[in-house]
Amino acid sequence: MLKLGVVSGAALCALGLLVPSAEVVLWAGIVMVMVTPLAGVVASTASLVHERDLWAKAGIVLIAVIAIGLVLSLA
């Protein structure tokens, strides 16, 4: 997921830079790069939960901490 997200995002960024009128594509690429690590956390946590891994709790707590932090910062 990390590879797919960041490579896709970079490709959109490159397209957006090459075509000046395609600002939407540029922003889409940047946003895709930015959310990739957070999507990776969710995917990793889901996988650990599925495996009933003890470390899944860490992922769940981290998702909560990130969500709270973002809400507080953006409010």
Partner: peptide, 10 residues
């Protein structure tokens, strides 16, 4: 990456 992503969104 996780830390930077949170900051970048803000």
């Amino acid at each position: 990456g996780i830390t930077a992503a949170s900051g970048a969104i803000i």
